[in-house]
Write a protein that binds this DNA or RNA. Structure first.
Lengths: 262, 262
DNA sequence: ATTAAGTGTATCGCATTGCGATACGACAAA
DNA sequence: TTTGTCGTATCGCAATGCGATACACTTAAT
C-alpha cells in the first residue's frame, strides 16, 4: 500500500515555516492583546530570531500593526477582513441573517447564531439588545459545547452513540458556581432537548442568565447550527419564556433550515 | 549610515514562504468562497505544487476546511476566532459597544462603528435593525472612504493638508448612479462636516440610503473612528434626522471619545 | 556619568527546507 | 477505450530560512 499515514503526509507536504508564522497570529487572545518580540517568543515557544523574522513579515504584509513607540505588535484590520470572507463562505449566515434581525426586533432580546466547532460552540453572529459583558457582544467566541444551550440543542439531534461520546468525553469548565459539572444532568438536559426540539440552560456562563436554543436542521436531520436567545432570569420566568419566546424562536430556526442546502 | 532601506530590510528579515501562505488566505473573498487547488493556484499566481503544500498545511493547521467530496477548500472557524482576538485588542470597541447598543435601541435604526484603514473605511461593529442587503450586516467590509459618511466625518477632523491629500488622491468607485464622482462636491461635504461636527451622505452605496456619521475624537483632535446611523430616505426626511437622530448620535460619539485613551 | 540589564535589530555561514518539474492515479466525458 | 482534467505524490537541487551571536538603543540604578 502506497498511501501515506497522516504523520508521513505531514512530513512531505507540510510547510513548517507557514505553520510557525500562523502560530504567531494565534498567540493573540483576550488576555494577550499586544505583545513585544520577547512576549511572542515566549508564548509561541520559538526563539527570538524566528519570531523576529515571522513577526516582521506579518507586519510588512499587513497582518500585524507595530506601535512605533513601544515596538509592540497588535492585530490589524486584516483580521476582520478575514471574518468578512468567512461570512460569505458560510451559506447558513446569508440565509439566517434577515430572519435573525427580524426575531431580535420582535423579541427585543439578544439573539445569537452559533455552530459547533470541535467540542466547542462558536458564535457566528450576534445581535445584542441590552448591555452585556463584552465577550457576549462579539463574534468568534468559543465555549464548551456541553455547557451551553446551543451545544445541547445541537447534540440532541445526533445519534445515540455520538451523543454519548460527546456527553462523556467533551470538556467542561467552571464559569459560575452553578455551571453544571454533572454529566448525568447534562445527559438528561440533552434528552429533554431531543424530545422537545429546543434546549434551555440556566446560570451556565453567568448567573441569572437563561439561554434558549433551537437547532437549525440540515437535510440529514442533524443540526447545522442553532439560534439562541439569551435573557435575564430577573425579567423572564419559565412560563413567559415558553409562551412568548419559544414559538418565535422555533419558527425562526425552522424558517432557516430548508434553505441551508437548497 | 548602517540603517537599511525598506527594500533591503525586506530581503534579510522577510520570510517569503509565510507571505505566500497568507496570500492563499487572502484569495478568498465575497465572490470566491470556496476554491479548488487549481483555482487557488490561478488566483494567487503560484504554481500548483506550491499551492498544494501551502493549502495542505493550512488545512492541517485548521485554517481551511476541505470538502471531502469536491476537494475544495473553504475558510474555517479559525477566521472568526481571529476576529475575536482583534476585538479585544482594539480599545475603542470595548468602550463603544455598550453605548452603541443603547443607541441602536433608542433609535430603532441600524448603527455601525467604523475606522479608517488606509484609504478605505472598515466596519468594525454592526448592529442591524432592519432587513438590509447581506454585505451591510456583516463586519469587516471595506468601502472607499471618500464615498462614505464615516470617511468624510473622520477626514473632516484632519489638518488642511492631510484632508487635501485624501480628497484629491484617494480612490472612488461607482456603486449607484448617484455615487458622487466629483471631488469638489466631496470637498464641500467634508468642509460642512468639519463645521458641523458630523457628516451626512445620500445614495452613495445604495439608492435611498442616508448615512449619518459622527467622529469619535482622539486626544489629539483627530478622529479615531466614527459612529454611523444608516436610514432609509423613505422613512426619514432631513428635518426629522436633525431633530431625532443627530442629538443622540453626537451624544454617543462624544460619550465614547474620552475613554478612548483614558 | 558610568555601568548594567533588558530589549529590539542586524549579520552570516550552514544545512534544512521548501521548490517545482514531473509522474501517477482517479474520475468524467466523449 | 481514449482523452482530458484535476488532485496527489516523488525527488534531487539549491534557495531559503535557521539560530547563534554581535550590535544598538533605552532605561534604571549606582
Amino acid at each position: 500500500m502506497k498511501k501515506l499515514a497522516d504523520a508521513e503526509k505531514r512530513d512531505s507536504l507540510f510547510v513548517g515555516t507557514l505553520a510557525k508564522g500562523l502560530r504567531v497570529l494565534r498567540a493573540f487572545d483576550e488576555s494577550n492583546t499586544e505583545m513585544s518580540l520577547g512576549a511572542l517568543a515566549e508564548r509561541t515557544g520559538m526563539d527570538k530570531s524566528a519570531v523576529q523574522r515571522l513577526a516582521n513579515t506579518l507586519h510588512v504584509e499587513g497582518w500585524l500593526n507595530k506601535d512605533p513607540a513601544t515596538r509592540r505588535f497588535r492585530p490589524s484590520h486584516a483580521w476582520l477582513e478575514l471574518a468578512y470572507a468567512y461570512y460569505w463562505s458560510d451559506p447558513l449566515v446569508g440565509a439566517a441573517m434577515p430572519k435573525l434581525i427580524e426575531l431580535s426586533r420582535s423579541l427585543g432580546e439578544t439573539i445569537n447564531l452559533a455552530e459547533i466547532s470541535g467540542d466547542h460552540i462558536l458564535y457566528v453572529s450576534r445581535l445584542p439588545c441590552h448591555r452585556t459583558y463584552f465577550a457576549a457582544s462579539i463574534i468568534g467566541r468559543r465555549l464548551p459545547a456541553l455547557s451551553t444551550s446551543v451545544g445541547r440543542a445541537m447534540i440532541s439531534t445526533w445519534s445515540e452513540e455520538e451523543r454519548e461520546i460527546a456527553i462523556t468525553t467533551w470538556p467542561l469548565k467552571v464559569f459560575t458556581p452553578r455551571t453544571t459539572q454533572d454529566r448525568d444532568q447534562i445527559r438528561a438536559n440533552i434528552a429533554d432537548a431531543a424530545a422537545q426540539g429546543f434546549a434551555i440552560s440556566r446560570d451556565q456562563m453567568i448567573l441569572n442568565e437563561i439561554g434558549i436554543a433551537a437547532p437549525i436542521m440540515g437535510p440529514d436531520g442533524r443540526a447545522l447550527a442553532a439560534v439562541q436567545c439569551s435573557v435575564s432570569a430577573y425579567a423572564w420566568d419559565d412560563e413567559r419564556i415558553r409562551r412568548k419566546i419559544l414559538p418565535m424562536l422555533l419558527d425562526t430556526a425552522n424558517a432557516i433550515s430548508p434553505h441551508a442546502r437548497g
